[in-house]
C-alpha cells in the first residue's frame, strides 16, 4: 500500500488531522462564541475534504449551508441566550466517556469489513451509482450526474426536502413569533415568576 502514497493522500490526511484538532478544541473550550466559530471552521475543512473526494456539489453546499447559514443561526441563538458554557465536573464526564469508548470500539471492530478507501469495485460503487452515470449520458442533457439524479431521477425526494425546510420555517415562526421579542420576553409558567440562574439557589433554600 505504500506505493500508493501520493500528495493527494498527504492532503487528505492533513485535512483529517485538522478536523480532529478542531473537534477536540470544541470539547475543551467553554466560550460559546469560539465553539460556534470552530463549528464553522469544521464545516469549511470538511468542505475542503469533499473537494478532494470528488464531491464538488456537496462541497459548495457544505461551505454555504454548513459553514455559512448554520454559523449565522448559532450566533443569533447565542446572542439571544448566553455567551459561556458552564464547566462540567470531571466525574460527570466519565459516564459519557465510557459509552463513547464502547461505541467506538464496536465501530472499530467493524472497520475491517469495510471496503478499502478509493475501492472502485466496492458494493457501494459498483451497481446503482454506475447505472446512474451510464443512464445520465443518454437520458439527460446535463453533464452533471448529481444534478440529474437530484432534480430528475429522485425529484420527489428533493421536493420532500423542500417541504422539510418549509416545515422548519413554520415551526420557528410558531415558536418565536414575528413580534421581534424573541429571547427578551420572560415567561411565567403557572403564574410563577421564574427568575433563572441568579436566584435559583435562594429559591431552593426557601423550599424544604
Amino acid at each position: 500500500m505504500m506505493e500508493g502514497f501520493t500528495p493527494i493522500l498527504l492532503l487528505d490526511m492533513g485535512l483529517l488531522a485538522m478536523l480532529v484538532v478542531v473537534a477536540f478544541a470544541v470539547v475543551r473550550l467553554r466560550s460559546l462564541f469560539a465553539i460556534v466559530m470552530l463549528q464553522g471552521v469544521y464545516s469549511l475543512l470538511s468542505a475542503a475534504w469533499f473537494v478532494s473526494l470528488d464531491a464538488v456539489d456537496v462541497a459548495f453546499t457544505e461551505a454555504a449551508v454548513g459553514a455559512g447559514i448554520s454559523t449565522v443561526l448559532m450566533l443569533g441563538a447565542m446572542l439571544l441566550t448566553e455567551r459561556e458554557a458552564k464547566p462540567v465536573p470531571f466525574q460527570k464526564q466519565l459516564g459519557p466517556l465510557f459509552i463513547v469508548t464502547i461505541v467506538a470500539l464496536a465501530m472499530f471492530y467493524a472497520v475491517g469489513d469495510m471496503p478499502a478507501f478509493g475501492d472502485a469495485l466496492s458494493p457501494a460503487n459498483s451497481y446503482v451509482g454506475a447505472d446512474y452515470i451510464a443512464a445520465t449520458k443518454n437520458d439527460i442533457i446535463l453533464p452533471n450526474v448529481v444534478t440529474a439524479v437530484l432534480a430528475s431521477y429522485r425529484s420527489f425526494d428533493t421536493f420532500g426536502e423542500v417541504v422539510v425546510v418549509y416545515m422548519a420555517g413554520l415551526g420557528i415562526l410558531l415558536l418565536l413569533g414575528l413580534n421581534g421579542n424573541a429571547g427578551k420576553w420572560r415567561a411565567k409558567p403557572n403564574g410563577q415568576n421564574i427568575t433563572g440562574r441568579k436566584n435559583t439557589a435562594e429559591q431552593r433554600e426557601d423550599k424544604p
Binding site: L53, D119, A120, A124
Partner: peptide
C-alpha cells in the same frame, strides 16, 4: 462521501 471516492476517478460530471 469517503465511501463514494474512487481512486483515480474524477467528479461525476460527464
Amino acid at each position: 462521501i469517503s465511501l463514494s471516492k474512487v481512486s483515480g476517478g474524477q467528479p461525476p460530471i460527464i
